[in-house]
Amino acid sequence: MYAMLTPTFTLLAVFSLVPFLWAFWTSFFDYEVGGESRFVGFANYVEYLTDPTLVSSFVNLGFLTAFGLLTVTTAPLIIAKLIFSLRSERARYLYRVLFLIPIVVPGVAGLMIWQGMIYGDTGFLNELLRLVGREDLTRGWLSDPQTVIWAIVFIGFPFAGGINILIYYAGLAGIAESIHEASELDGARGIRKFIRIDVPLVMSQMKLLVIMTVIGTVQGFEGMFILTKGGPGLKTMVPGLWMYMNAFSFQRMGYACAIGVILFLIILGLTILNMKYFRSSEDLTAENA
């Protein structure tokens, strides 16, 4: 058994663990690609605390994470419930497929569509405003400091992510029929039943999606990189993008590694918090047993 695991573990070590340890070690050096490296201890970490982007980027990150959590815990769950409530199995299958189809569009292409077709000079929003005679309200949605962060978070509207819907759907499908019958006998119907019965029982799915959303938001910067480069100014700057710029544009590898380690610690902390305080149905069952 152990021998069978060895190749997997070796690959994991080479491509994931070793780079992580190397990054951790590099974060203690002033290391520029092609240049000499110099041990600086915790200087990179201390410098990051006074970095001009620190406050803006973490405020942005907080906002994006909060908005991401709000959307991932509401829209896909509601849609999953609506689909699950359909009587016809064929209709349920059809809607699942329909909501899943958009995931074949590559993420970058999706971003470009939003950039050009929705937020562009002659995109949907500006043309709509012109149509209703409000030319004065048209703007560069991704270049206006007042609108850019909202323009970013609304990408993906109405937030009906196909995979997320499927995860919730699987959770709803896993609820025993006896529970539904018992709750209905007790008079729980409609929204009340959804809030009191369904939501607590899909908590383990929600927990998974919350963790994935937090990790994805803290690590991710590709949306900002493609759409705004973190601008205008620092209005959409996030720590991941600043880390990337330091590593590959400014060649400050040691500093970028320090930012990476800090992000790792933040993700680790949030995941532990989530595991500890976000109780799923299994946890509740175990507690009651």
Binding site: P145, G231, P232
Partner: peptide, 15 residues
């Protein structure tokens, strides 16, 4: 990078 960003913001009434 910082100069360009901040000038962009200043010119567009961001700061």
């Amino acid at each position: 990078e910082i100069y360009r960003r901040m000038l962009d913001l200043y010119l567009n009434d961001g700061i």
